[in-house]
Design a binder for these strands. Sequence first.
DNA 1: TCCATAACTTGACAGTGTCAAGTTCTAGTC
DNA 2: GACTAGAACTTGACACTGTCAAGTTATGGA
Lengths: 188, 188
Amino acid sequence: MNTAYHHGDLRRALIDAAVEAIGETGTGALSLRAVAKRAGVSHAAPAHHFGDKAGLLTAVAAEGFDRFADALEGVWEATGDFAEVGVAYVRFAIDNRAHFEVMFRPELTHQDDPELRRAAARSGAVLDRGADRTDTEGDALGYRPAALAAWSLVHGFAELAIAGNFSPEVMADPEAALREIARKLRFD
Amino acid sequence: MNTAYHHGDLRRALIDAAVEAIGETGTGALSLRAVAKRAGVSHAAPAHHFGDKAGLLTAVAAEGFDRFADALEGVWEATGDFAEVGVAYVRFAIDNRAHFEVMFRPELTHQDDPELRRAAARSGAVLDRGADRTDTEGDALGYRPAALAAWSLVHGFAELAIAGNFSPEVMADPEAALREIARKLRFD
DNA sequence: TCCATAACTTGACAGTGTCAAGTTCTAGTC
DNA sequence: GACTAGAACTTGACACTGTCAAGTTATGGA
């Protein structure tokens, strides 16, 4: 089966190879040809499955959003604690840097791709659902300040952690630090 | 003076051209040769001043951190209100997307560049100074939860706003939204 | 006036994404 | 079981990229 043609599931293999490569060298240094080589196929094989480079990254982002939604949903259903959803948010970001990086960098992907939109919407829904309970005000504003605050806090923590802006003390146990921080957020 | 050689202040012109180009197409699509063309010089001229592409972006980041520190310091000295420093943080991010993007993407720059380190340290100092007042706990932890919370909240808001993740209602007046959100943060 | 050196150019190289055209396999029909 | 349409992949080419080595031109000080 491992003949030259018909890899079996090249699409999957290419996504995995891309995630691997991004994990090692970041999105900036990502090369489609290197991804192809990693998967053992010719340099133009990715284009056949994904159209172009952004297409491949779009698939990575969509997969990321789906796994992200799974993780958040799981924690929300298990604990019913929105703060724990926040912890899961940063845990996902740190454990899946490659996916996370692509998910929140719109210029890398085809933002209008239906698969991507669907997966991203799933993630958004989980966050909204959790936030609804605590948010009583804000209908006049057109947005929910408490939800925005929680999202910003958690997302900022994740980005700063990933970018290496935090001290070793914080990075020694990021989840503990986030729990400490989340206590500063009061909804009344 | 505007002869082929000795542009006058090509270094400046190249930084400006880079910021312009990033503002139009993002860091991903930034081309050193396009920057050179924009400044009216040969394709290898940037390398002479900055060594390589990361060198140019390092200069952009350093300039960004200096202006950032100026802006934050100005607001802090004028108002003494740390929440207003936060507003200035996101205003800078939105008004200077190109600089901001490069400042917080370490893989784009030479992280060990002394100029960059100095400028980044300046920004850090302003944020620390403002946070000190409100932060009484945390010495045992090795970090200050209140300061971390404020930084995460503000940085996350800025990143999400820039990446286009917020609704039109929020983006209609981001500063108002941030002020609303910041009220959720209580230090006691 | 001379000349060391800074400022920039020219030309080349390997690597990149993308496209068009070719090849090889698979699956379904007769 | 042979035939064929189309999917899966390769090959080769193109323009563009960052970087380097070598060349050219200007400047400022002795």
